[in-house]
Design a protein around this nucleic acid. Structure first.
Lengths: 174, 174
DNA sequence: ATCCGGAATATGAATTATCATGTTTTTGCC
DNA sequence: GGCAAAAACATGATAATTCATATTCCGGAT
């Protein structure tokens, strides 16, 4: 009531709030925080974030099909298609349709794309090392382990493949 | 589910790839996975994801100023402004300008907004409990602790406040 | 007081992402 | 073999997001 300084003075703050202890928030905030940091480096190289993700995925395994790649890169197929278009324009990747199944389109790094990918992956490793250092390698190892488990349980390949985005919108007028 | 027909036949797969062990990827994938799951419930209630985030933040502390709220909710100020517009239309929140500093706009939950927020937070708690159960409460506790540390080091309030997303990167590489 | 820089929000044009659907190819079934 | 159904991508209209900038207001220095 009488707190006329600048900061809080507001609502009925419980302990320190639900949000700050909520697992999904912590995951999002941690991800956001560290990623934003690295993304600055990515952009500094003239690469957009979604492109970096694709480069990294392809550096791991070249010639993935679009659907695969989209799942791995955590993005929707139609979006990936468009990003691939742009990357193809920039000569970072090329498309080639699969021999055995011509519905499939496989995406390959060009020489340029590959070397760019290598550089960025190297940067990423360095950046990651910095973070792991800050939180102690031991804790980082545990962290990665638990995260991997969560991803295994709730990640892209863990979902029934038909409900990867399906929900009843339940359009209520308001 | 995965290509049980065609063997990879593709690239020079190292062990299992860089990406799948990369901390930033694990964070993003874990976050994505568990969040997508819960977001289905949110949408089922006719609430959009960004709205849910704001509701949760305001439930924690009502009457936050826009900038604060944006930082906490991990979104840009201009975006938040627009979301607040929509939420105000739906009578979930109201704006009131701060007495002491009239540049500031404080956002408050309406009665409707508050009860919706409560319901959703309750859902979130239940959902979270399910996940924590899967990965054992002990590991979950460690996970949260490490995540909180990462957020403290790299999160919104940990950044120089001038480089939070503004001003062009200046094309420089160091 | 007045001026100047910076903080807090709002706004609008340009860019991106999403959703539903279309096209082509393959598979499974009869 | 022929057909229906499903898989894999592409596309285009709609909606959301970003980026730069405008507007208003505060605080300190002159």
């Amino acid at each position: 009531m009488t707190a006329h300084k600048h900061p809080p003075e507001a609502g009925q703050t419980a302990d320190q709030g639900f949000v700050r202890h909520y697992l999904l928030y912590l995951l999002a905030a941690a991800s956001e925080g560290v990623s934003t940091e690295f993304h600055a480096q990515v952009r500094a190289r003239g690469v957009r974030v979604p492109e970096w993700r694709i480069l990294a995925c392809l550096a791991d395994e070249d010639g993935q099909m679009v659907t695969q790649l989209a799942a791995l890169a955590l993005m929707e197929q139609s979006r990936l298609t468009k990003i691939i278009d742009q990357m193809a324009d920039k000569k970072l990747v090329t498309r080639r349709s699969d021999e055995r199944d011509r519905r499939r389109v496989r995406v390959f790094l060009t020489a340029t794309g590959r070397s760019l990918a290598r550089e960025l992956v190297e940067d990423a490793r360095i950046h990651e090392a910095g973070i792991i250092d800050q939180i102690s390698p031991a804790q980082a190892a545990i962290l990665k382990h638990v995260l991997a488990r969560i991803v295994a349980l709730h990640g892209p390949e863990a979902r029934p493949a038909g409900e990867r985005r399906t929900t009843r919108p339940a359009e209520e007028e308001s």
